[in-house]
Amino acid sequence: MTPEHRTENLIRDIAVRPLPQPYAPGALLGMVLGLIGLGLALFMGLFGFRPDLASAVTALPVQAKSLLALALAAPAFGLALASARPSAPLRLWPLALPGLVAAALVLQRLLAVPPGMAGAEMMGQTALACLMSITALSALPLMAGLWLMRRGAPTRPGLTGGLLGLAVGAGVAAGYALHCTEDSPLFFVLWYGTGIALAALTGAVLGRLVLRW
């Protein structure tokens, strides 16, 4: 039997197999957002919202914390989901927009802060708690998302995993901001940014491992 004949036989064999499990981006998104919401609800139940939430949400820097993170999470989710389809066009530049706004906020604050105070403001009081919370709250949604993503066909598994990690980290940070009382851009751009970057890095590393096909 020639190799071509074996291929013809294989085609006949493959063609009658049942349909594979569908790649369902909607279900994946629902699962990941649900798990993020669940984790945040649990977190707020344990540690509570910031006490001054009602009055604070009207202040611009407080809104910026959540809105910037959401502005990062939304395109990152969209890109991560799209990247699991071969040949889907990926425009990554929307991810840079919240980064640019964050950089502008940092610059503005640096110019306004009294000399010698910038360092202390940047370190804040809760940097470690912030990092640990964002990382811990991201873990489960990221795992679940990567698992469902295996039904997709990402031709760049590291990128897909990284985008998913970025989206999850940013989504978690947007919620965590409702608990955190540190409102200086010097603090939250650095520490939220680090937390989100850690989630993205984790996603990229795991993506290269589990999203191969």
Binding site: T7, I11, R17, P20, Y23, A84, A153, W213
Partner: peptide, 16 residues
């Protein structure tokens, strides 16, 4: 080629 054909089957639902 056969590996590719099998992958087309397994991932065919990623095509819209």
């Amino acid at each position: 080629l056969q590996e590719v054909l099998l992958a087309i089957h397994l991932k065919r639902l990623t095509w819209r």
